[in-house]
Design a protein around this nucleic acid. Structure first.
Lengths: 239, 239
DNA sequence: CTCTCTTGTTACAATTCGAAAGAATTAGGC
DNA sequence: GCCTAATTCTTTCGAATTGTAACAAGAGAG
C-alpha cells in the first residue's frame, strides 16, 4: 500500500502570483496542512488526475482560463472543498462565485490566519459525524464527558451525572476562574424569572459538589462567593 | 399522516435587532427557505428542543448571553450549519468564531444576497454528505439493513425490526452522539402535537432496546437523559 | 456575641421514564 | 366476510430524577 500515508489534509493552492503562493503555502504548512502549489490552471488540472486534494484554494483572475468556469467544474467533479480567493470584492462577484459551487469566498488582501481558520471549518464539516463529538473537558483529576454524561477520574472510576447537573457543570467549565452570579445561572439554565427557583440551583450545585467529591468544609473546585455567586477554580482544557 | 411536511430548508435567525431579523427573514423566505426568528438566546435554545434547523444565523453580541459560548455549544450539539453575523470585523474575531465551530462568518453590514448565497453553499455541502443513498448502517456489532428491515449481528444472527422501530433507529443513526429531545422525535416521526402519544414513544424505544440486547440497568447504546431526551452512543458508519 | 441574611443539606413530593400486559388497529389468508 | 397474527398504542405501576420545603450551618453587620 502507500509507503507512508500522509495524514495531513491536503490543500491545493492555485494562484498566479508567486508571493501569494509562497505565503499561503508557508502559513498552511505551519498550520499542519500538506500543500501543493500551482501557477496555472492547466498545471492544476493535470495534477487532479494524480491526486485528490481535500481543499482547493483558487485565485480568480488567472491568466490562462476563466476562473469561475474552473470553479464550477471542480465543484461538480471533485469532492474537495473549494475556496475562492479574489480581489473582486463586489457582492455580486461573491454571490456568483458561491452559486457556482464554491464553499467560501475570501477577499484580497487577506490574513493567512483567517484562511487557515476557514479551511479548518470546511474540513471539520466534511468529516462530519465520524470523529466529531469530542465534547470533553479535563480539570483537576477529572474528565467530564458531556456526550456520555459521565465523569471519569484519573484512576478510571466513572461517576454518572444527570442532565441538570451537567448544565451546571458545563456552565462552570465554560468560564472557569470567573465569577458567575446567581442571576446569570438562572438565566443560563432556563429558569424563568420566577423567584421560587433559586433554591433549586443550590441543590443542583450541592449534588454536583458531592459527585466531584468536594469537602464541604473546604471546596477546592466550586467556591461560593457569599452574596455574589460562584467561581470555578481549576484549570480547564477542552478536547 | 403528516399534514404536509415542509420540504424547504429551515433557517433559524437569532438577532436582537428587529429590523435585521425582518430583513433576513424576508430575503430568505423569498429565496425559498423556511425561517424562524428569535430575539434572545433563551428563546432560541428553547426552540431547539422542538425543532432542528438546518442552518443557524447567529448574531454575536446578544444582550443576554455570551454569543461565542452559544456557538460552541451549537457546533457540538446540533448538526446544523452555523453562520455568525457580527459587527466585529477584526481578523482575530473571525478566527476565534470559526475555531469555535462556526461554519462561516459574515460581517455587518451585509447584503442579504450574499447571506443567501452562503447559506446555499453550506446546505449544498451538507446534503452531499448526508445524501448517502445507502440504506445500511454499521454500529457496535450490528448492521442495520433498512431496506430489508433486519438487524444483523457480527456473528450472523438476524433480528427483524418493524417499521415503527426502524423510524426510531434511523433517527438515532442519523445523528449519533447527539441529544435528541422527545419533542424532536415526535416532530420527526409525524406525531402531531398530541399529548397522548407520550408513552408510545417509550414503548418503541423500549422494544428497540431489547432487540439490540441492551442491559436495562446499563444501556450502552441508547441512553436516556432524564428530562431532556435520548442520546445514541456508538460510532455509526453508513454504507 | 448575637442577630440576620445567605447558603448547604436533607427529606419529601412531583414529574418523568421503563417495561409489562392488555386493547385496538392493520394485514393477510381462507 | 371472518379469523388469525402481527404490529402498534394505551394503561398501569415501579423506579429514577428533579424541584420544593424545611431546617441547619455559616458569614457579615452591629
Amino acid at each position: 500500500m502507500t509507503p507512508s500515508p500522509d495524514l495531513r489534509a491536503h490543500v491545493a493552492i492555485l494562484d498566479d502570483e508567486p508571493e501569494i503562493r509562497q505565503m499561503l503555502s508557508l502559513a498552511l504548512e505551519e498550520a499542519g496542512f500538506r500543500t501543493s502549489c500551482y501557477a496555472r490552471a492547466t498545471e492544476f488540472e493535470a495534477s487532479l488526475k494524480r491526486t485528490t486534494p481535500d481543499v482547493c484554494l483558487v485565485d480568480l483572475g488567472l491568466p490562462d482560463r476563466d476562473g469561475l468556469a474552473l470553479v464550477h467544474r471542480l465543484a461538480l467533479e471533485s469532492g474537495a472543498a473549494i475556496i475562492i480567493i479574489s480581489g473582486r470584492a463586489q457582492v455580486q462577484d461573491r454571490v456568483t462565485g458561491l452559486e457556482l459551487g464554491a464553499d467560501d469566498y475570501i477577499i484580497k488582501p487577506f490574513d493567512p490566519a483567517e484562511v487557515v481558520a476557514r479551511i479548518r471549518a470546511r474540513l471539520r464539516k466534511g468529516r462530519s459525524d465520524a470523529d466529531r463529538s469530542a465534547d470533553t473537558a479535563h480539570f483537576a483529576d477529572w474528565a467530564a464527558h458531556f456526550d456520555r454524561y459521565i465523569l471519569v477520574r484519573s484512576n478510571g472510576e466513572e461517576v454518572p451525572f444527570s442532565h441538570a447537573e451537567g448544565e451546571v457543570l458545563r456552565l462552570f467549565l465554560e468560564s472557569p476562574k470567573r465569577l458567575i452570579s446567581r442571576a446569570q445561572m438562572q438565566e443560563s439554565l432556563g429558569g424563568a424569572a420566577g423567584e421560587s427557583f433559586d433554591r433549586a440551583m443550590d441543590v443542583r450545585i450541592s449534588r454536583l459538589r458531592t459527585k466531584l467529591g468536594e469537602d464541604p468544609k473546604n471546596p477546592r473546585l466550586i467556591k461560593t462567593i457569599y452574596g455574589a455567586g460562584y467561581i470555578f477554580l481549576g484549570d480547564v482544557t477542552w478536547v
